[in-house]
Design a protein around this nucleic acid. Structure first.
Lengths: 340, 340
DNA sequence: CTGTTAGCGCTTTCAC
DNA sequence: GTGAAAGCGCTAACAG
């Protein structure tokens, strides 16, 4: 009478249904090339009809589990959940274990890394600014632990990295603002220690220059990638004698801060002031009006990073792969043509 | 020359070192009762000296993996990362797989649940408001899939649940404000559909009443648990003829919104206005000044939920356990004595 | 190209 | 109380 949960099909069931050995079935599942097309088709059909899903845990016992270390810095915390989601999704799919360590929980980042190494991780995923830290990279190499750089703006040749083209993203957004008719465009830059901050600023400056627009020095303020820093930058920018008609902040947290200050000054957005962000984190849609921003596929990128990290931990691991995330301009309500 | 990573010790190594069979070692590791103390001690020492850590993946292949479904609603997204962190930590420790599903990615919550059931999960973890939804609970029961309620304010007798005492938390904070000398205290309430919102409001009202303070109806505004809702509530509250000297918002997102509006009006915090939040999410420390709030141990609670869910999915699972998270008042810079 | 054998690290079952 | 054997679901390694 009770609803019986039927046993999940194993690879042997698949093999039997397809009339082959389980080894052949395994090869098909894993995309091993040297299987005849006819056989492959039969197996694939059996997989479909049985609804077979490989048991990643069992697989991991055989292939050797990799314990993968993952650092995180709280830089833009709204990104964190996406980062984790993507990483964990991939981890459970490939049957590896993730050891997460908040780097700011340690006196120095190097100690956070050391803790992971001591725990026996096979490789590590390094977000900025750690992924650009030569000392850390070197100590990792000495310990024989591979590193995957995550979201670095300067992927090193021959080292695995997942990244976006921050430069191109900043170009896109600057272009968008210029196309809208803005001329007096201000920029709130991130933490200069992050390579991404530098690239985003470069993208902004070059696009402006190419459009024949000058970037007034007073129009570039430091926000350090934090909400609080953005608050100060915004206060500076919006109290200038000649106020910019658009402010492009190097991340959403700072853009949200600009929005808060603008509201405080009684400015209406986007009629009086256009605001643009970067990252498309959750704050972009919680503030009002919602922010025009650049979306980066953080979750997918984290998943790729885990995949690279696993390859790295494996004996015959192929190192040096680069994966680039696809950027997208998300146009929302915070940008419009400048007031005339 | 290269740093060789030594193989992790297996239970067989432990057994050999202790001079027993691996079976006995296994029993000790798992706390099986019928092992002589002398033998147990020997094994435990071997575990320590070898630094043995059980391989949870291998264990899971034998005990049968449980696939556990986990819904999430984006209510307070800042909580999400903690929720995920705790859940995944526990999951990898107990060797189960987590299937995450954002409930708002589906037209109705019921469909999100159905998707998990179809995927073959052994049990589900339900955050609010789903955990209080009778229809969903019933359909789950019909499908023979157990449910663990997460953060519900009304844990059902005999059903597994992880929760906090929202009522007590609201009391703590209200008490704190009253002790500071506040009399005109306003409240921004959450989404009435969430049971937690109701309990928090009750806690506020009762504490006020017990202190002999009246709660003016105009002093209670709706914020719907969102930043945007908080913005409107704050605008209402701060434009009242007789402005409150303190505002207690039922979550941090709304408290942050109150802070933004107050800044906009040129009020200084906490000199002119005290602001209190609830949850201690990351926004509490990103806004300035940092928010006094109530911390709930989300990560630990999520870990407990996973544990309960696993018990539920097992054949001889013990249902009906309740786990209560420990609340804590975090006093930061946003509250102080009222202006005189 | 495909199948056989062996075994990952652990635990269940059933002896003793 | 303790151990020997068998096997979870999967895949390396080697045959053929």
């Amino acid at each position: 009478m009770s609803t019986q949960r039927r046993q999940a099909p194993t690879i042997h069931d698949v093999a039997q249904a397809a009339g082959v050995s389980s080894m052949t079935a395994s090869r098909v599942v894993n995309g091993y090339p040297h299987v005849r097309q006819a056989v492959r088709d039969k197996v694939e059909e059996a997989i479909k009809t049985l609804g077979y899903r490989p048991n990643s845990l069992a697989r991991a016992t055989r292939t050797g589990v990799s314990l993968i270390g993952m650092l995180y810095s709280n830089a833009s915390s709204s990104n964190l959940s996406n980062y984790l989601m993507g990483a964990f999704r991939q981890a459970s799919q490939s049957g590896c274990q993730l050891l997460i360590e908040p780097s700011q929980a340690h006196p120095t980042p190097a100690q956070a890394v050391q803790k992971l190494v001591d725990a026996g991780v096979g490789s590590v995923i390094l977000p900025p600014p750690l992924c650009d830290d030569a000392a850390i990279l070197e100590s990792l190499e000495k310990a024989g632990v591979g590193a995957v750089s995550f979201a670095t703006a300067f992927p090193r040749e021959g080292a695995p990295a997942v990244f976006i083209d921050d430069f191109a993203g900043a170009r896109m957004m600057t272009r968008h603002l210029i196309d809208l008719g803005h001329v007096d465009i201000a920029f709130v830059r991130g933490d200069p220690a992050h390579s991404t901050a530098q690239r985003r600023e470069q993208g902004f400056r070059e696009t402006m220059a190419q459009a024949g627009l000058t970037v007034n020095d007073a129009y570039v303020a430091d926000g350090g990638f934090s909400y609080r820093g953005g608050l100060e930058a915004a206060r500076h920018l919006l109290n200038l004698r000649r106020r910019p008609s658009a402010i492009f902040a190097a991340n959403d947290d700072m853009a949200a801060a600009v929005s808060a200050v603008a509201h405080g000054l009684g400015l209406s957005i986007p009629a009086d002031l256009s605001i643009a962000g970067f990252d498309d984190t959750s704050v972009a849609t919680t503030v009002w009006p919602e922010l025009t921003t650049i979306r980066q596929p953080i979750a997918d990128m984290a998943a790729s990073a885990v995949k690279l990290a696993m390859d790295l931990a494996r004996p015959g691991g192929e190192p040096g792969v680069h994966v680039q995330g696809e950027l997208q301009l998300i146009e929302r309500a915070s940008t419009a043509a400048p007031p005339r």
